[in-house]
Amino acid sequence: MSDTTTSTAESAGKDASPVRPPLISPSRIWSLATVTFTQLLRMKVLYFMLIFGLIVAVIFNFNPSGQTVAQQLKSTKDVSFAVMNVFSMLFAIASTAILIPKDLEDRTLYTILSKPVPRLDYLLGRLMGVLMVVGACLIIMYAFLALVLFVQEQILVSAELSRLREQPQMDSETLLNMENDMRKQGLHWPLLYAPLAIFLKACVVAAVTLFLSTFASSTLFTIIVSAMLFLIGHFHKSTYEVLMEDTHANAVVALLGKLVVLAVPNFALFNVVDGIAAAEPVDPMLMGQLFLVTAVYTVLYLLVALIVFMDKEF
Protein backbone atom coordinates (compact mmCIF):
# COMPACT_ATOMS: atom_id res chain seq x y z
CA MET A 1 0.00 0.00 0.00
CA SER A 2 2.65 2.48 1.03
CA ASP A 3 4.76 1.74 -2.02
CA THR A 4 2.74 3.97 -4.24
CA THR A 5 3.49 6.92 -2.06
CA THR A 6 6.99 7.60 -3.21
CA SER A 7 6.30 7.10 -6.86
CA THR A 8 3.26 9.31 -7.16
CA ALA A 9 4.88 11.97 -5.09
CA GLU A 10 7.77 12.02 -7.53
CA SER A 11 5.58 12.64 -10.52
CA ALA A 12 3.49 15.16 -8.67
CA GLY A 13 6.44 17.48 -8.70
CA LYS A 14 6.70 17.48 -12.49
CA ASP A 15 5.76 20.44 -14.59
CA ALA A 16 2.51 20.54 -16.50
CA SER A 17 4.07 19.97 -19.91
CA PRO A 18 4.44 16.22 -20.25
CA VAL A 19 6.11 14.47 -23.13
CA ARG A 20 3.79 14.11 -26.09
CA PRO A 21 3.26 10.42 -26.89
CA PRO A 22 4.36 9.59 -30.42
CA LEU A 23 1.44 9.42 -32.84
CA ILE A 24 2.33 5.90 -33.82
CA SER A 25 4.07 3.81 -31.24
CA PRO A 26 4.95 0.30 -32.41
CA SER A 27 5.14 -1.06 -28.88
CA ARG A 28 1.73 0.30 -27.97
CA ILE A 29 0.19 -1.03 -31.17
CA TRP A 30 1.92 -4.32 -30.57
CA SER A 31 0.49 -4.66 -27.07
CA LEU A 32 -3.01 -3.87 -28.37
CA ALA A 33 -2.50 -6.35 -31.18
CA THR A 34 -1.30 -9.13 -28.88
CA VAL A 35 -4.20 -8.59 -26.52
CA THR A 36 -6.56 -8.80 -29.51
CA PHE A 37 -4.77 -11.92 -30.66
CA THR A 38 -5.14 -13.57 -27.26
CA GLN A 39 -8.74 -12.43 -26.99
CA LEU A 40 -9.66 -13.99 -30.33
CA LEU A 41 -7.74 -17.19 -29.71
CA ARG A 42 -9.56 -17.63 -26.43
CA MET A 43 -12.77 -17.44 -28.45
CA LYS A 44 -11.76 -20.90 -29.67
CA VAL A 45 -11.34 -19.98 -33.32
CA LEU A 46 -8.77 -22.71 -33.58
CA TYR A 47 -11.54 -25.29 -33.50
CA PHE A 48 -12.14 -24.23 -37.05
CA MET A 49 -8.77 -25.70 -37.91
CA LEU A 50 -10.18 -29.12 -37.02
CA ILE A 51 -13.05 -28.62 -39.46
CA PHE A 52 -10.56 -27.60 -42.10
CA GLY A 53 -8.51 -30.72 -41.39
CA LEU A 54 -11.63 -32.82 -41.74
CA ILE A 55 -12.55 -31.28 -45.10
CA VAL A 56 -9.07 -31.80 -46.48
CA ALA A 57 -9.04 -35.38 -45.20
CA VAL A 58 -12.34 -36.04 -46.97
CA ILE A 59 -11.00 -34.58 -50.21
CA PHE A 60 -7.89 -36.68 -49.82
CA ASN A 61 -9.98 -39.83 -49.82
CA PHE A 62 -12.38 -38.61 -52.45
CA ASN A 63 -11.73 -40.05 -55.86
CA PRO A 64 -14.64 -39.75 -58.22
CA SER A 65 -14.35 -41.83 -61.35
CA GLY A 66 -12.71 -40.22 -64.29
CA GLN A 67 -10.44 -37.90 -62.29
CA THR A 68 -6.88 -37.95 -63.52
CA VAL A 69 -4.03 -37.74 -61.03
CA ALA A 70 -3.47 -34.10 -61.90
CA GLN A 71 -7.15 -33.38 -61.40
CA GLN A 72 -7.22 -35.09 -58.04
CA LEU A 73 -4.26 -33.06 -56.85
CA LYS A 74 -5.81 -29.91 -58.19
CA SER A 75 -9.11 -30.68 -56.45
CA THR A 76 -7.31 -30.96 -53.12
CA LYS A 77 -5.77 -27.54 -53.68
CA ASP A 78 -8.96 -25.93 -54.97
CA VAL A 79 -11.11 -27.10 -52.11
CA SER A 80 -8.50 -26.29 -49.46
CA PHE A 81 -7.91 -22.80 -50.78
CA ALA A 82 -11.65 -22.21 -51.04
CA VAL A 83 -12.09 -23.20 -47.39
CA MET A 84 -9.13 -21.05 -46.38
CA ASN A 85 -10.64 -18.20 -48.33
CA VAL A 86 -14.07 -18.51 -46.77
CA PHE A 87 -12.66 -18.85 -43.28
CA SER A 88 -10.35 -15.86 -43.63
CA MET A 89 -13.04 -13.60 -45.00
CA LEU A 90 -15.69 -14.62 -42.47
CA PHE A 91 -13.22 -14.32 -39.65
CA ALA A 92 -11.85 -10.97 -40.79
CA ILE A 93 -15.34 -9.53 -41.09
CA ALA A 94 -16.89 -11.01 -37.96
CA SER A 95 -14.04 -10.45 -35.54
CA THR A 96 -13.32 -6.93 -36.71
CA ALA A 97 -16.99 -6.07 -36.50
CA ILE A 98 -17.25 -7.39 -32.95
CA LEU A 99 -14.16 -5.76 -31.42
CA ILE A 100 -15.09 -2.09 -31.05
CA PRO A 101 -18.70 -2.62 -29.91
CA LYS A 102 -17.50 -5.19 -27.40
CA ASP A 103 -14.87 -2.84 -26.02
CA LEU A 104 -17.52 -0.19 -25.70
CA GLU A 105 -19.96 -2.52 -24.01
CA ASP A 106 -17.37 -3.72 -21.50
CA ARG A 107 -16.12 -0.16 -20.99
CA THR A 108 -12.61 -1.36 -21.77
CA LEU A 109 -12.62 1.25 -24.51
CA TYR A 110 -12.88 3.91 -21.79
CA THR A 111 -9.93 2.60 -19.88
CA ILE A 112 -7.85 2.25 -23.04
CA LEU A 113 -8.68 5.62 -24.54
CA SER A 114 -8.26 7.38 -21.20
CA LYS A 115 -4.63 6.26 -21.32
CA PRO A 116 -2.29 8.24 -23.56
CA VAL A 117 -3.30 6.13 -26.56
CA PRO A 118 -3.85 8.00 -29.83
CA ARG A 119 -6.96 6.67 -31.51
CA LEU A 120 -4.98 5.70 -34.59
CA ASP A 121 -2.94 3.37 -32.42
CA TYR A 122 -6.07 1.78 -31.10
CA LEU A 123 -7.40 1.14 -34.62
CA LEU A 124 -4.06 -0.12 -35.86
CA GLY A 125 -3.64 -2.40 -32.86
CA ARG A 126 -7.07 -3.91 -33.32
CA LEU A 127 -6.61 -4.42 -37.05
CA MET A 128 -3.21 -5.95 -36.56
CA GLY A 129 -4.52 -8.32 -33.89
CA VAL A 130 -7.23 -9.62 -36.21
CA LEU A 131 -4.76 -10.02 -39.06
CA MET A 132 -2.32 -11.85 -36.81
CA VAL A 133 -4.98 -14.44 -36.07
CA VAL A 134 -5.90 -14.74 -39.76
CA GLY A 135 -2.22 -15.08 -40.65
CA ALA A 136 -1.58 -17.70 -37.99
CA CYS A 137 -4.61 -19.71 -39.07
CA LEU A 138 -3.58 -19.51 -42.73
CA ILE A 139 -0.12 -20.77 -41.84
CA ILE A 140 -1.56 -23.72 -39.92
CA MET A 141 -4.04 -24.55 -42.69
CA TYR A 142 -1.43 -24.22 -45.41
CA ALA A 143 1.01 -26.43 -43.51
CA PHE A 144 -1.66 -29.09 -43.25
CA LEU A 145 -2.58 -28.75 -46.92
CA ALA A 146 1.09 -28.96 -47.92
CA LEU A 147 1.53 -32.16 -45.95
CA VAL A 148 -1.60 -33.76 -47.40
CA LEU A 149 -0.77 -32.66 -50.92
CA PHE A 150 2.76 -34.00 -50.65
CA VAL A 151 1.61 -37.40 -49.41
CA GLN A 152 -1.16 -37.54 -52.02
CA GLU A 153 1.28 -36.62 -54.78
CA GLN A 154 3.72 -39.36 -53.78
CA ILE A 155 1.04 -42.04 -53.53
CA LEU A 156 -0.91 -41.17 -56.68
CA VAL A 157 2.04 -40.43 -58.93
CA SER A 158 3.95 -43.59 -58.06
CA ALA A 159 0.82 -45.71 -58.53
CA GLU A 160 0.12 -44.07 -61.88
CA LEU A 161 3.73 -44.44 -63.03
CA SER A 162 3.86 -48.13 -62.26
CA ARG A 163 0.62 -48.53 -64.21
CA LEU A 164 2.02 -46.58 -67.15
CA ARG A 165 5.29 -48.54 -67.18
CA GLU A 166 3.33 -51.67 -68.01
CA GLN A 167 1.89 -50.05 -71.13
CA PRO A 168 3.39 -51.39 -74.36
CA GLN A 169 5.90 -49.18 -76.18
CA MET A 170 6.17 -46.74 -73.25
CA ASP A 171 9.46 -44.92 -73.57
CA SER A 172 11.23 -43.20 -70.74
CA GLU A 173 10.88 -39.75 -72.25
CA THR A 174 7.12 -40.00 -72.50
CA LEU A 175 6.99 -41.40 -69.03
CA LEU A 176 9.00 -38.45 -67.77
CA ASN A 177 6.72 -36.01 -69.57
CA MET A 178 3.65 -37.59 -68.07
CA GLU A 179 5.19 -37.58 -64.61
CA ASN A 180 6.04 -33.91 -64.99
CA ASP A 181 2.48 -33.19 -66.00
CA MET A 182 1.18 -34.89 -62.89
CA ARG A 183 3.75 -33.36 -60.56
CA LYS A 184 2.96 -29.94 -61.92
CA GLN A 185 -0.20 -30.05 -59.82
CA GLY A 186 1.69 -31.23 -56.73
CA LEU A 187 3.46 -29.31 -54.01
CA HIS A 188 5.66 -26.44 -55.18
CA TRP A 189 7.01 -23.28 -53.61
CA PRO A 190 4.95 -20.87 -55.76
CA LEU A 191 1.86 -22.40 -54.18
CA LEU A 192 2.74 -20.30 -51.13
CA TYR A 193 1.54 -17.27 -53.05
CA ALA A 194 -2.02 -18.54 -52.65
CA PRO A 195 -2.29 -18.17 -48.85
CA LEU A 196 -0.45 -14.87 -49.25
CA ALA A 197 -3.09 -13.60 -51.68
CA ILE A 198 -5.83 -14.79 -49.33
CA PHE A 199 -4.12 -12.93 -46.51
CA LEU A 200 -3.87 -9.74 -48.54
CA LYS A 201 -7.55 -9.99 -49.33
CA ALA A 202 -8.31 -10.44 -45.63
CA CYS A 203 -6.30 -7.27 -44.89
CA VAL A 204 -8.50 -5.22 -47.18
CA VAL A 205 -11.68 -6.86 -45.92
CA ALA A 206 -10.70 -6.21 -42.29
CA ALA A 207 -9.81 -2.58 -43.03
CA VAL A 208 -13.16 -2.01 -44.73
CA THR A 209 -14.99 -3.65 -41.82
CA LEU A 210 -13.04 -1.59 -39.31
CA PHE A 211 -14.11 1.55 -41.13
CA LEU A 212 -17.75 0.45 -41.03
CA SER A 213 -17.59 -0.47 -37.36
CA THR A 214 -16.42 3.03 -36.42
CA PHE A 215 -19.84 4.41 -37.21
CA ALA A 216 -22.15 1.40 -37.39
CA SER A 217 -24.96 1.28 -34.89
CA SER A 218 -24.75 -2.48 -34.44
CA THR A 219 -22.43 -5.39 -35.06
CA LEU A 220 -25.00 -7.01 -37.30
CA PHE A 221 -25.12 -3.93 -39.49
CA THR A 222 -21.34 -3.96 -39.83
CA ILE A 223 -21.24 -7.64 -40.73
CA ILE A 224 -24.02 -7.44 -43.29
CA VAL A 225 -22.73 -4.29 -44.97
CA SER A 226 -19.17 -5.66 -45.03
CA ALA A 227 -20.35 -8.87 -46.63
CA MET A 228 -22.31 -6.87 -49.18
CA LEU A 229 -19.36 -4.67 -50.04
CA PHE A 230 -17.26 -7.82 -50.29
CA LEU A 231 -19.58 -9.26 -52.92
CA ILE A 232 -20.04 -5.96 -54.72
CA GLY A 233 -16.26 -5.57 -54.77
CA HIS A 234 -16.01 -8.82 -56.68
CA PHE A 235 -18.14 -7.90 -59.59
CA HIS A 236 -18.79 -4.18 -59.58
CA LYS A 237 -16.27 -3.60 -62.30
CA SER A 238 -17.55 -6.20 -64.72
CA THR A 239 -21.14 -5.28 -63.92
CA TYR A 240 -20.37 -1.67 -64.57
CA GLU A 241 -18.80 -2.53 -67.90
CA VAL A 242 -21.78 -4.65 -68.91
CA LEU A 243 -24.09 -1.87 -67.83
CA MET A 244 -22.23 0.66 -69.92
CA GLU A 245 -22.22 -1.57 -72.99
CA ASP A 246 -25.75 -2.86 -72.79
CA THR A 247 -27.93 0.05 -71.95
CA HIS A 248 -27.86 3.64 -72.82
CA ALA A 249 -27.48 4.05 -69.08
CA ASN A 250 -28.57 7.50 -68.09
CA ALA A 251 -26.09 9.89 -66.56
CA VAL A 252 -27.21 9.31 -62.97
CA VAL A 253 -26.84 5.53 -63.15
CA ALA A 254 -23.50 5.90 -64.88
CA LEU A 255 -22.24 8.28 -62.24
CA LEU A 256 -23.45 6.12 -59.38
CA GLY A 257 -21.83 3.07 -60.94
CA LYS A 258 -18.59 4.95 -61.37
CA LEU A 259 -18.67 6.08 -57.74
CA VAL A 260 -19.19 2.54 -56.50
CA VAL A 261 -16.33 1.28 -58.65
CA LEU A 262 -14.10 4.02 -57.27
CA ALA A 263 -15.02 3.61 -53.61
CA VAL A 264 -15.35 -0.14 -53.20
CA PRO A 265 -12.16 -2.20 -53.46
CA ASN A 266 -11.83 -4.46 -56.46
CA PHE A 267 -11.72 -7.75 -54.58
CA ALA A 268 -11.67 -9.72 -57.82
CA LEU A 269 -7.96 -8.90 -58.08
CA PHE A 270 -7.25 -11.29 -55.26
CA ASN A 271 -8.80 -14.24 -57.06
CA VAL A 272 -5.35 -15.03 -58.41
CA VAL A 273 -5.58 -17.92 -55.95
CA ASP A 274 -7.36 -19.94 -58.65
CA GLY A 275 -4.57 -19.34 -61.13
CA ILE A 276 -1.92 -20.17 -58.55
CA ALA A 277 -3.72 -23.38 -57.62
CA ALA A 278 -3.88 -24.31 -61.31
CA ALA A 279 -0.05 -24.15 -61.31
CA GLU A 280 0.09 -21.19 -63.68
CA PRO A 281 3.54 -19.58 -63.40
CA VAL A 282 3.56 -16.68 -60.94
CA ASP A 283 5.49 -13.49 -61.57
CA PRO A 284 6.77 -12.25 -58.19
CA MET A 285 6.64 -8.70 -59.54
CA LEU A 286 2.89 -8.97 -59.99
CA MET A 287 2.51 -10.32 -56.48
CA GLY A 288 4.53 -7.34 -55.32
CA GLN A 289 2.10 -5.05 -57.09
CA LEU A 290 -0.80 -6.88 -55.50
CA PHE A 291 0.86 -6.23 -52.16
CA LEU A 292 1.13 -2.57 -53.05
CA VAL A 293 -2.53 -2.38 -54.02
CA THR A 294 -3.42 -4.02 -50.70
CA ALA A 295 -1.35 -1.46 -48.83
CA VAL A 296 -3.08 1.39 -50.65
CA TYR A 297 -6.53 0.00 -49.83
CA THR A 298 -5.66 -0.66 -46.21
CA VAL A 299 -4.20 2.79 -45.66
CA LEU A 300 -7.13 4.42 -47.41
CA TYR A 301 -9.74 2.65 -45.32
CA LEU A 302 -7.76 3.16 -42.13
CA LEU A 303 -7.61 6.84 -42.93
CA VAL A 304 -11.36 7.19 -43.32
CA ALA A 305 -11.87 5.02 -40.24
CA LEU A 306 -9.64 7.38 -38.33
CA ILE A 307 -11.53 10.42 -39.58
CA VAL A 308 -14.74 8.96 -38.19
CA PHE A 309 -13.17 7.60 -35.03
CA MET A 310 -10.93 10.56 -34.24
CA ASP A 311 -13.47 12.70 -32.45
CA LYS A 312 -16.11 10.09 -31.88
CA GLU A 313 -17.70 10.42 -28.47
CA PHE A 314 -18.37 7.54 -26.15
Binding site: P18, V19, P21, V35, T38, Q39, D106, R107, T108, Y110, T111, S114, K115, P116, V117
Partner: peptide, 14 residues
Protein backbone atom coordinates in the same frame (compact mmCIF):
# COMPACT_ATOMS: atom_id res chain seq x y z
CA UNK B 1 -4.04 11.62 -20.69
CA UNK B 2 -0.45 11.11 -19.57
CA UNK B 3 -1.44 12.57 -16.25
CA UNK B 4 -4.80 10.89 -15.84
CA UNK B 5 -5.94 7.55 -14.56
CA UNK B 6 -9.52 6.41 -14.84
CA UNK B 7 -11.62 3.78 -13.16
CA UNK B 8 -15.02 3.44 -14.82
CA UNK B 9 -18.12 2.25 -13.06
CA UNK B 10 -18.37 -1.55 -13.05
CA UNK B 11 -15.34 -2.09 -15.24
CA UNK B 12 -15.00 -5.28 -17.22
CA UNK B 13 -11.48 -5.81 -18.28
CA UNK B 14 -10.43 -8.58 -20.60
Amino acid sequence: RNQVGFLPENPYFY
